[in-house]
Structure formats: C-alpha cells, structure tokens
Amino acid sequence: MAKSDIKKTTASKRPEDPGRRDFIVIATNAMAGLGAAAVAWPLIDQMNPAADTLALANIEVDVSKIAEGQSITVKWRGKPVFIRHRTEDEIARASATDMSDLRDPESDQARAEKADYLVLVGVCTHLGCVPLGQKTGEVRGEYDGWFCPCHGSHYDTSGRIRKGPAPTNLEVPPYTFLSDSVIRIG
C-alpha cells in the first residue's frame, strides 16, 4: 500500500474538530487537565522538608552549664547556633554602642531576650561562612565579638556588623526561655 496516496487525500479532507464546541468534550478535557494538575502537587511537595526533618526544626538547649564568658555551638536546622554567656563588660559595651555607628542599627536589648545570653545563627550574612570567635583563643575581630575569616567581617559583642563586607547583623533565631536554664530554639 503506497502511503503517499492516502496522505494526499486525507490531508485535503481535514475534519472540522467535532469536539471543539461540545460541552461534554470540553468537560472531559477540563477534567483531564484538572487531574494532571492535582497529581503535580504531591510530586512537588515531596521536595519540602520531610516529617523527620521537621521534627528537628526546634531544639531545646540547657544553657546553665555555660560559664560566664564562654560560648557553645549547637546545630539547629543544619546550621551552627552560637550561644554566648556574656560578661558584664561585654553587655555594657554592647548596650552602650551609639546607633549611628552601626551599619544595621539594632539595640542590644532587641537582640537578647535575657542580656546574659546572646543567641545567634552563626552564619556570616555576607556569603554564608561560619565566623570565628566561639572558642577561647580564636580571633574575635576588632570589636571582640566574632570575625569572619572568609572576607573579613567584624561583629561586636551583640553580633552586629561593624566592619567588613557583610550587610546585616548576625541573625537572631526565634527562641524562648522555657525556664531559667532551658531555651527552645525554633
């Protein structure tokens, strides 16, 4: 059978699509579209954090064992969280800072629920490195807070950006004191 013969004849006789204006045909096609869209959602939503990931989205930390002047780092949502038990001197310096000196003005009271404990997400706001200054003996930068070695950002004792390329202060994660010694982050 020569295929080209059929082609010539049928091509000239293109049918008027009988379904174009028919309600039932339109409804069927609409349902097919709706179904496809509904199926897309689970396939996309599966990329969102799973239940076991969400279960670790908030953690509880006992801060009573941190000696004054010491810091601890805990992991929260895959990122380091700095908790520093600040000395009187550090608190005094943080709250005495003049707002006009700050690139991203924020008072120390607004950043620490209890002045003794400063809780920060330990990720430099410049390009995501982890700043130094947690362990005794580490470089703390010119403002005695934290220093990011990647591109030289200096943070003060309230975690605010003072010098270097970072645009904003170190982020304060959402947290609450469940008791005097336990905080819940997240």
């Binding site: 059978m1 295929k3 013969d5 059929i6 004849t9 049928t10 006789k13 293109r14 049918p15 699509d17 009988p18 379904g19 045909v25």
Partner: peptide, 22 residues
Amino acid sequence: FGSNNPIGIDASGPQDTISFHP
C-alpha cells in the same frame, strides 16, 4: 506503514481511514 487493524488488510483509500485527532 501505519497501524495494523482488526481485519488485517491494508487501508485502500481515504474512505478506510480517519485522522488521529480527534
């Protein structure tokens, strides 16, 4: 060569075929 069909003989002309869509 197109689909076979339940009768198994080749289409002999346009009266034997229809377009795929619709």
